[in-house]
Design a protein around this nucleic acid. Sequence first.
RNA 1: GGGGUAGUAGGGUAGCCUGGUCCAUCCUAGAGCGUUUGGGACGCUUUGACGGCAGUUCGAAUCUGCCCUACCCCA
Length: 480
Amino acid sequence: MFLAEEEQGALPPKGDFSAWYNELLWRAEIMDVRYPVKGLYVWYPFGFAMRRNVYDLLRALLDRDHQEALFPLLIPENEFAKEAEHIKGFEEEVYWVTHGGLTPLEVKLALRPTSECAIYPMYALWVRSHADLPLKIYQIVNTFRYETKHTRPLIRLREITSFKEAHTVHTTWEDAERQVEAAIALYREFYDRLCVPVIISRRPEWDKFPGADYTIAVDTVMPDGRTLQIGTVHHLGDHFSKTFQITYEDAGGEQKYTHQTCYGISERCIAALISMHGDDRGLILPPDPAPVQVVIIPITIGKRKEEVSAAAEGIGKELAASGFRVKIDTRDIRPGAKYYYWEMRGVPLRLEIGPRDLDARQVTAVTRLGEKSQIPRETLVDGVRDRLSSFSAALRERAEAHVRTHIGVSHTLDEVAAAVEHGVTLVSWCGNRECADLLEEKTRAAVLGTDVRSAYLVDAGGPCVACGKQGTTALVGRSY
RNA sequence: GGGGUAGUAGGGUAGCCUGGUCCAUCCUAGAGCGUUUGGGACGCUUUGACGGCAGUUCGAAUCUGCCCUACCCCA
């Protein structure tokens, strides 16, 4: 039985997450990993359509009060070298362009690992007056990092293809801090639309963005219990402002340094999306990001083929006119084969229409979670809308249950070591690096952050898990 | 960062140790013909591969070296 399934091409079980993930990527036509350069992967059209939907969503959220722009990929060495702490954080990972054709360049050009050094010299020109502030700009671009660790499609790449980075400029530190909170709220909303639960925390000093005052991170818990950082928000203070001379004239006519933030999300959001919801049969996508929201399978047999096809066309048109992304699968293969095909690709809702449905003036609806029902033909659009929204709710609930059951509280290092085998854990931590290092050594897990914000949070309480001194709650886990 | 294993058709394997000139097989995909059709249909015909570069040799998938890529384990 098991062998038969394998011959028919079942995925590895999701319990074997690494194998499941790798195979799903090409079976669901998301990424082709066979490009012959380490850490670079190809988006298939289906994966790209999903990417577009996800980033359209993100764009729509940002466009409420940000402007989209586009800065160059290449950064001259002298600009790149300006902020000492920043370059130190990235120097091991930068790709350099050293030649134009056969001619060595007088000034080497960096492929952006992130765009601060491309954007801020321009901000210095753009920002004149307090009336120009706040300035909130974002771009969606590729960035390059020469990763030395194991690369993994969508998760650790040498070319991040889909980096949304926002860079804001403010008059005061406090105003920038408010922007940090606004960005966190925006990211929460974004991930809610993807039905991906998140845990927000403040990264330890040594793990913050190079050149930032502090870094707030957005993490999620993957199926194997490891965490994935799927967003960061940085308060940059006036570090970059001083480096790049971004000043403004205040109402009193005085020149002052600006305060800045930046925050980013990469295609890791898609890794989280597919990993969180997928199952042994393939992808499961919430309606918002799904390239195909409703697939219609005409059950065409014998003499009524024309009639069924026409009915399928009719419901397809009606749903498309109501704004759904619909696909009618008219391929000349058996219906069962189509079911498997679209299940692999995560389509939220399947509508079947055959002679029996015609006679009963209905369509048969099956969600990707396997809930089967009939929708009267007359109330089709409402029926589809209902099923999609309850499908979203069910997905969100499922995902939250996963996170809730993979987060615990530990009071000793032994408990931590056991907990991080299958999830994340909250501990009490004194805040000293020595204790974090000891914890990492004993448990092979890291202190991810403090000031943990999560619906699943309980106060860890008690003395520091490593040294016994007074501590506060911190998030600990193994991360990708 | 350290170590290990491996690369043969779109995917998975055999052959390699012991070199021999049409590289075999399974799945899938494509082309063709026929029978099929409410959960992965079937028969027959056919297309398609030794990761790259160099070396050894009369002769290399096989031996040697380097490179590239992938996966696993440890830090």
